[in-house]
Design a binder for these strands. Structure first.
Lengths: 202, 202
DNA sequence: AGTTTTTCAGCACGACTGTGTTATAAAACG
DNA sequence: CGTTTTATAACACAGTCGTGCTGAAAAACT
């Protein structure tokens, strides 16, 4: 048969084709056949790498979060604490068209996951990623607190939840109205929120 | 034929059946036939009220936002400005299981709307509702400002966007992790955010 | 050179899809 | 009581769905 193939990269190619279909026509159009056509193979070929459709969906959702995690863990923590924190937040927010597309797909997966009663694979994955992002918020705020730049009397646990919710909310708004919620505006708003947590007179 | 029927209420019944299907099995399962079965009629009957599937989807999305709007406009503005503002926010946040279900459905519609390239009906509707919610945030913050309870030096336009994003983010979190983001916690977080905007020593 | 393994296309199956069209029954109206 | 209108079911049609199975071609290995 044709050249030997790396299964993982092939699976990723197919998953990315799924992303494009979901983004263009919605998750309702994400059939094995349309995905195969988008990827440029036959349906049988796709089925060789993914035994069933659920596995494909779940893999594709996983891949989205893995891409984000990879970007985040590639960050080098150089500079002042404030700039490091902002750089992390920059990487999580959808600041360009590619990341906005990523979030569109993620949005579709979230909605689909919510429809899984009990403990489906998507549901479980959504919970995991949700917790990981909260933990990132937590560690960012803690490093700010350790550096002593935060205001006194803050309930850190509350601020973690607020920052986390703000992050997701801003990402959503960037997807819904990219014209109004531009990258610059996103960064502005994020910075303004962090400033409200910091000491008023440095 | 059978008794004469109010078309609008019938359409709403069918739309609510669609909600249940979307919530239980996701938007991918929302076919004319499954919706008809859920509503307890034949597919032909459903088609009598909705000529095609797109119209049904768009009507059902519209109905979600209309329900929220109705609740919001039913609020009587009594009491201090702060309590009024909190009551409005209470009505927008998913504080009980019913409203959380509503948001799940809304989430599915948002994801589907994002897939409509250009100016589809869902896309347009999403933009409209998005703006309305921002305008609510705007008027709430302005009434707080007029009452003089806000801190000096606030950029109100920024705070509107932040409050709006926080609202959507919290709603999302309440849907994803209702155990952690309980109604009481939601209200706590919202109150904490508003307090951070208000004068430190009243 | 022959054999095995890997990769892919293709077809078949039964179920389901959206959308028409038609038939029928019940209520409303003359 | 007869006629018209409204509401619903039922069926038809062409297409698509997920999934299983088969076969063939190409690389890898012996």
């Amino acid at each position: 048969m044709p050249k030997i193939v790396d299964h993982d990269t092939r699976r990723e190619e197919i998953a990315e084709a799924l992303w494009r279909v979901v983004r263009r026509d919605g998750i309702r159009a994400a059939s094995v056949r349309t995905i195969a056509a988008e990827a440029g193979w036959s349906a049988g070929a796709v089925r060789y790498y993914f035994p069933d459709q659920d596995g494909l969906l779940s893999f594709a959702m996983d891949l989205v979060s893995r891409r984000v995690t990879d970007r985040v863990s590639a960050i080098e923590p150089k500079g002042s604490v404030e700039t490091i924190v902002l750089r992390y937040l920059d990487e999580v927010l959808p600041l360009d068209a590619e990341r906005r597309a990523e979030f569109d797909v993620w949005l579709a997966f979230m909605a689909q996951a919510r429809a899984e009663s009990g403990a489906g694979a998507l549901q479980e994955h959504l919970g995991k990623v949700h917790n990981e992002l909260r933990q990132l918020c937590e560690s960012l705020l803690h490093s700010l607190a350790d550096a002593g730049v935060l205001r006194d009397g803050l309930d850190l646990r509350r601020e973690v939840e607020l920052l986390h919710a703000l992050l997701d909310g801003l990402a959503l708004h960037a997807a819904i109205q990219p014209d109004r919620t531009t990258p610059t505006r996103l960064r502005q708003l994020m910075r303004r929120h962090l400033e409200s947590l910091m000491a008023e007179n440095p």
